[in-house]
Amino acid sequence: CCDLDLHKQPKGLEDPEILARETVFSVSEIEALYELFKKISSAVVDDGFINKEEFQLALFKTSQKESLFADRVFDLFDTKHDGILGFEEFARAISVFHPNAPIDDKIEFSFQLYDLKQQGFIERQEVKQMVVATLAESGMNLSDEIIESIIDKTFEEADTKHDGKIDKEEWRSLVLRHPSLLKNMTLQYLKDITTTFPSFVFYSQVDD
């Protein structure tokens, strides 16, 4: 009944070996990650790509929620800037969140995440916008006075050149002093991805 070609890789996963070489994942992990990708990318339109609506749906279980950060993360994943994520973009970006990924990659990614206007530095107004968005997203309520004092303190510590902005070098020394700021850049789940998505073995090309 079937014309199964077991050696043919699924669409979007044509070259798992190259992706494995260029990320921290093994070939099996790339294949397992593809299972997650398939699930997310078929939620609204089964076209082999994750669009913003599907990304939001996977993150929040609703596509209605407005989130500055979900948008920002999506845009950073979308290295081809075409509004959709192919598997390769997804795998390369997620790789940065692996516990074994180099800390410099995490520092760079987090800096870009917070550099909303992509000017090469994080300015006070951007930090305020992000704090306000975080509070709104989590339903917390802080007075403007308290928000300003939190930002004052943060800049006192981070902005060592006293020019009102945080550049990459200042960001790096801040997060090295406070590693907890990079906590959300590491997903322990990625260590167990082959057991979370075991169905990749049905077409796997490798035994590792």
């Binding site: 993150l59 948008d71 920002r72 917070y114 992000m130 802080l142 801040l174 959300n184 322990q188």
Partner: peptide, 25 residues
């Protein structure tokens, strides 16, 4: 006390930055 919290610590708790959700079945 929130007044001594680092702004980035606060920001990094945002739901939109918790990609772990993607891996929860």
């Amino acid at each position: 006390r929130p007044a001594v919290m680092n702004a980035f610590e606060l920001i990094s708790t945002s739901q939109g930055l918790n990609l772990g959700v993607l891996f929860e079945k």
